[in-house]
């Protein structure tokens, strides 16, 4: 069989999910904790925008006619998830860039003596910083659409593993949020977060350990949700999608994708991280190594999930 979509698309779907998931998580944590984590959305934007740009590059790289990528932005086609996705991606990135610019302008302390170009720019856009709150709501909405899109893209097709199965977008969303949060955890735990925090004039104050602990619990919850959705998805495929669906399940569970599925998705992406997290969550202080390991494994698992579904779906 010929695979039309290969590793470029696997990575693209994976990191687009991470990007959206990271902002989604960061935004919600900040909001649900009464804006006590304002640095989190900033860190998330700062990591997700490059990811989205990288993803877009991969997407363009995967095109048969790369120089025509701009054609995507001459039409707005509601029926085509890819058209919608392109726009979402573009807006998410643009909005993210604007947000970064505004945050930066707010924290920019120009030298009074020697106005530089940068300081002038900062001064000009600073008044607009008032809307950054609205922009983050927009970014949140875009993040939701972005992570949904990675699933909808596949389900609006005629490949038995993807087509019309409502739990596929759900699965991808669950995985996106899970991997997005894992990325956040990694960023925060490795000190990268503090570095980013500094960029926006923060003091590099650490995220409270309670938050980190809660995030660990949330990760367990997300893992469980993902398992439930995954089981639901497989059952749906196996029993309610005809012979082709059963064949798709076979590809995943016993066929060419079985190693990636059982080893990568289930073991690496779900079971091991869950065990690590549960063990870690029982202790009062998280074992940093364990947290980092589980976050990395979750991220990897997301990659394996995209690979299994994207590649496997073209093998049925």
């Amino acid at each position: 069989m010929t695979l039309t979509w290969k590793w470029e698309l696997v990575i693209y779907l994976w990191i687009a999910g991470i990007a959206g998931g990271a902002f989604f998580t960061a935004f919600l944590i900040d909001r649900f904790t009464g804006r006590k984590h304002e640095q989190l959305p900033k860190i998330a934007v700062f990591t997700s925008v490059p990811l989205v740009l990288l993803g877009s590059l991969l997407l363009v790289f995967d095109l048969g006619e790369q120089l025509r990528a701009w054609h995507l932005f001459t039409r707005f086609r509601v029926s085509s998830p890819m058209s919608m996705g392109s726009w979402i991606l573009l807006l998410f990135a643009l909005n993210g860039v604007v947000m970064i610019a505004l945050w930066w302008s707010k924290s920019f302390e120009p030298s009074e003596a020697k106005p530089t170009v940068l300081s002038r720019v900062a001064r000009v856009i600073r008044p607009a910083a008032a809307v950054v709150g609205i922009l983050s709501w927009i970014e949140f909405a875009l993040a939701v659409l972005l992570i949904a899109y990675t699933g909808v893209l596949l389900s609006a097709t005629n490949q038995p593993m993807w087509s019309g199965i409502l739990l596929l977008p759900a699965l991808f969303v669950a995985s996106a949020i899970s991997t997005g949060m894992a990325l956040l955890v990694l960023v925060l735990r490795t000190g990268l977060g503090r570095l980013l925090n500094h960029l926006f004039g923060g003091k590099g104050e650490p995220i409270p350990s309670e938050t980190m602990h809660t995030m660990g619990i949330a990760s367990i919850a997300l893992g469980i949700i993902e398992i439930v959705v995954l089981v639901g998805y497989i059952v749906w495929l196996a029993f309610f999608s005809g012979a082709a669906g059963a064949a798709a399940v076979a590809v995943l569970l016993t066929g060419p994708m079985s190693l990636i599925f059982w080893g990568g998705v289930v073991l690496v992406g779900l079971v091991i991280p869950l065990v690590l997290e549960v063990v870690s969550a029982r202790g009062k202080e998280a074992v940093v190594g364990s947290v980092l390991a589980s976050a990395s494994l979750i991220l990897l698992g997301g990659l394996f999930l995209r690979a299994a579904v994207l590649l496997g779906g073209q093998m049925v």
Binding site: F24, F32, S79, G151, N158
Partner: peptide, 24 residues
């Protein structure tokens, strides 16, 4: 291919909103 695309979007959004946000 796109006969259920609306429901698919909804599925993704609902999952994000309900299933994921609720634990948060």
């Amino acid at each position: 291919a796109t006969s259920t695309v609306g429901a698919q979007w909804l599925s993704g959004i609902v999952t994000a909103g309900v299933v994921a946000a609720v634990p948060f």
